[in-house]
Structure formats: C-alpha cells, structure tokens
C-alpha cells in the first residue's frame, strides 16, 4: 500500500489538493476564499487527469478534456464572483453568515412594518 502511494505521488498530490479545495469550498465563510477553494479543487482534478493520462507516446485525450474543463472553470468562477459582488452590494459584507444575520434582521423589520400597516388598515 505505502509503496503504491509513493509510486503514485502525482495522483496523491492531486487528491490531497482537491481535498484542500473541497474543504475550503465548504468551510470558509468568506466568499472570495470559497471561490479560491473551488479553483484549487478543479485545478487539482486537472492535475489528476494529467497525471493519469500522461504517457510519452499518447498524450492527447486528457489534454483536450482539460482544455475544455479549464474554460468551464473560468466561466463558473466569473459567475460566482458576479454573484458575490451582488451580495456585497446588497449587504455590504463578503461573509455569508453576516449576510444571513443581516437578512434575518431586515426580514423581521419588514414583517413588523407589514403588521403595523395591517393594524392601521383594520383600525
């Protein structure tokens, strides 16, 4: 087992990197760090592709897939950044927990406002 692990060091590095990326994507509360985690994860998967597909004689298929995948990652990253910008404009924070807290407060204010309006209407 250990011998195999040492022999496949590219793959092991790729898997550990993708684990780090996944962890960042799930655990970071700051959205920019989440997006960085996403990029680490996807790049690690491409490293895995390259490591497993590399052969001095026949390189092409993984290279083509990685080219396609990179563009997909770029698009997804940009879209996530745009959403983050939108969130920042709305709440003034990049932290997803703080955004939740502010949203709850705002909703409570809104509910209180609506209740007050309804009471006025009834009276």
């Amino acid at each position: 087992m250990l011998e195999k692990l040492i022999l496949n060091h590219y793959e092991i590095a790729a898997v550990i990197l993708s684990g780090i990326g996944l962890m960042n994507l799930l655990l970071q509360r700051n959205l920019i760090r989440k997006i960085i985690g996403l990029n680490i994860m996807n790049t690690a998967v491409y490293l895995l592709f390259a490591a497993k597909g590399y052969n001095a004689e026949y390189p092409p298929v993984p290279a083509g897939l990685i080219l396609t995948g990179i563009v997909v990652t770029v698009s997804v990253t940009t879209f996530a950044l745009a959403l983050t910008l939108k969130l920042y404009e709305t709440y003034g924070t990049l932290n997803i927990d703080e955004a939740l807290m502010k949203m709850t407060l705002q909703q409570e204010e809104l509910e209180a406002k609506i209740e007050a309006q309804e009471e006025e209407l009834i009276s």
């Binding site: 879209f79 959403l83 955004a99 909703q107």
Partner: peptide, 15 residues
Amino acid sequence: PETARAALRYLVMSL
C-alpha cells in the same frame, strides 16, 4: 435582498 444569497448557496452546493 435574499436572491443573491440563495443563488450563491445553490451555486456552492452545485459546484
């Protein structure tokens, strides 16, 4: 106000 947050949450899970 809440759509950007909901969409981000959806996006992270999808990713």
